[in-house]
Nucleic acid binder design. Structure first.
Lengths: 403, 403
DNA sequence: TGTAGTTAATAAAAAAATTAATAAACTTGT
DNA sequence: ACAAGTTTATTAATTTTTTTATTAACTACA
């Protein structure tokens, strides 16, 4: 897919036309529907004859295809065009602590191949890296798609990641030139990377509820606690990609020691892990719960507690309320600091929206100023299955300016 | 200055060339030195003949001027060009609680007229607004510059401001269409506005130490406490312009009631106001200070305490240390959240850099994670006089894409 | 059913921009 | 001091793009 790779090159004879071609592709890809020539030409600010010429060349290259005619109120009906869904493919990879998933998307981000939740143990070793690579390679082969049509690989991985340099600090940090350049060389494809929470943010930004918001927070509340910050319509990475370390915000009353070495980290009070701990404590103090009928206390994971809360278990609900209020207080502080128009609660906790929403809101009133609070709405993520995986893949489109 | 106003209009016959002309102007204005034709043409990606043609038209319009020839290692010596400093002027206005300042800058942001620190009381009244307007008008007249050469007015004002809509929420909020459109109509000039802290951030971003930083925090520590956040090289305003309400971060141990109605606001512990309060308390508890020799406790303002600290007064220094540690703790939290590469301490407290720097750093270690902390340096503002005023004016250049 | 009105697409003419060629100005090395 | 090499600046030739004009396709209404 040579046309997508031009942008890096300097000025040459073809460059300007190729830039315009890429603009056409981007316009069509961003548009919800197929577009007619006049609209395309207005969109990229060129005349109809040149636009038509470029479009025909793109059709010749099978990058753009006709999509029939559309109804109009009056006048000749225009032929509309869209990007050929088969013109390019994207690999999305999600590497979590205990499982790895790969999806292959077409250029419209429709999933056309999947190999999800393969059991796996993430370790900072050469061997583990080799496993990841062969799994990705296998998926590409199994998909039976033309290899020269792959545009790139987008990876989401737990831990701290520098999206700019392509380094992963916690895992595979033994590589000299960073993780992306290593994988890129091996697969002979451009590779982009970010951490699991940021990738979730990308998903919300382009496909979820943050689509129309210029300033939003995406909370990733699962076993851990993370935050993706979107400001001025862009994901905020910070200087080294560390932005969003919400779980280590020193805001809690708890004196529990966090793995980071400090006490009072928010993640020790607001997270799936914290929910499990608090559940155990409560049971030890004699409280009862529906969950105890089936399992012993040790085996109860936060997923089960969330489900129990949904089924009406009083203990689980009250624990969730506690968490909601604490999360709300912390978010209120960030609302003062960043004045987001929207907060999206994502991650595994999103299913507990009914129980959490009011407690978060009430927590926020404790800390947030009334003006920024009034202009900030709270929503729960409703993206389809595996939003992180889709966001991981979307990095590729984002870097090509196609989204 | 018609050429600067084109960008708003739609597509017309001249539009494309004017866009290129604006690019040339922007390139020359951003460059430190005057540039020769080949460099300009490479910079805006046009050929030498067209570039020369456009340049000559700009010279005809007196927007660009020749700036002699430069020495080169070999080959014919090129003529270099720069933006005519007299081609356009900018009005910067700073409206604080007790004083108002106006400066007029040329397009290089050199100050060519000033009327600073006029005594004044900011009130939310028609009368006060009229005073502001006549003062600005007077300054424009006194400057004796051609009125048609003014590019716009940039305002910095205390209180909460929506830079996008041009509304000021705390002052002059009785206007129907926002403050900027009102002043714009009266002065017949484009008007841009932001709050005093954001304007300070703009100053650091374009002329100060944040020039080369893509992610920075600018702390405005004077009688109040504010924060300007720069991420991805842009000032973060948030959804309604409220971003940076650092002073109301709920992070303190103090139980003092803040004007916002909450307790525990950081501004009640870290600010000039807080310094005055703590000084009073300490003296009442029997501590001594150099300052007491001259003034009664009631009359001592934070400026004096800062100066006393600089002169070695033990009480003042220890109070500053307290403030520094608290500020550092709060900043550490933000470092975790946003991973800035640079923190600039500006405002009146900047002169106490020697005393504050270590305590801020030690405070940060309490809350910040080691990784983001390591990549974050702390500096003290060293911009010239009235950085806020310069930042206010710079808004105009920023909106024209000339900076 | 036919005509006026509207928009799309194509073809021809005009304008604009680029490349190529050339002249001018300057440095360096012999 | 003068030829060779470099870079800038100007002019001429070629290519590209846009305007303008024309034809095609369709709706609405009489």
């Amino acid at each position: 897919m040579d046309i997508f790779k031009i942008q890096i090159e300097g000025i040459n004879k073809e460059s300007k036309q190729l830039v315009q071609k890429r603009k056409i592709i981007a316009l069509l890809n961003k548009a919800e529907t197929a577009l007619p020539i006049p609209v395309i030409c207005r969109g990229v600010r060129i005349s109809v004859p040149t636009g038509t010429k470029l479009l025909n060349e793109l059709i010749e290259d099978q990058i753009i295809v006709e999509a029939g005619k559309i109804e109009t109120d009056n006048g000749r009906r225009p032929v509309v065009y869209k990007v050929n869904p088969q013109c390019g493919y994207i690999v999305g990879v999600e590497i979590l602590l205990k499982r790895i998933s790969v999806s292959i998307f077409n250029i419209e981000m429709k999933e056309i191949f999947e190999a999800k939740d393969k059991e796996f143990v993430l370790e900072n070793t050469q061997d583990c890296l080799a496993q990841v690579l062969t799994f990705i390679e296998q998926c590409i082969v199994s998909s039976e798609l033309e290899t020269n049509k792959f545009l790139g690989v987008g990876i989401g991985i737990t831990g701290r990641v520098n999206a700019m340099t392509g380094e992963s600090y916690n895992y595979f940090n033994f590589l000299e030139n960073g993780l992306t350049s290593f994988i890129s060389q091996r697969l002979n494809l451009p590779v982009f990377i970010d951490n699991d929470t940021h990738v979730l943010g990308i998903s919300e930004l382009f496909f979820g509820k943050a689509k129309d918001a210029r300033n939003a927070l995406v909370v990733n509340l699962s076993r851990g606690l993370g935050l993706a910050i979107i400001m001025n319509g862009e994901l905020i990475s910070g200087d080294r990609g560390f932005a969003g370390e919400f779980g280590h915000m020193q805001f809690g009353d708890s004196t529990k020691l966090c793995i980071c070495g400090k006490r009072g980290c928010l993640g020790m009070e607001v997270s799936g892990f914290a929910l499990e701990e608090r559940f155990k404590e409560s049971v030890e103090n004699g409280e009862s719960s529906l969950l105890l009928q089936k399992n012993s206390t040790d085996r109860i994971r936060y997923d089960s507690i969330l489900q129990a809360a949904w089924q009406g278990d009083a203990l689980s609900i009250s624990l969730l309320h506690e968490i909601g209020i604490k999360l709300g207080k912390a978010l209120g502080n960030i609302v003062n600091l960043l004045n987001p128009g929207l907060i999206i609660l994502g991650g595994k906790f999103a299913i507990a929206s009914d129980i959490l929403t009011d407690s978060i809101k009430s927590g926020m009133t404790h800390t947030a100023l009334s003006q920024p609070l009034r202009s900030c709405s709270i929503m729960f993520s409703e993206t389809g299955a595996d939003p992180g995986l889709k966001g991981a893949g979307a990095q590729v489109l984002y870097h090509y300016g196609l989204i």
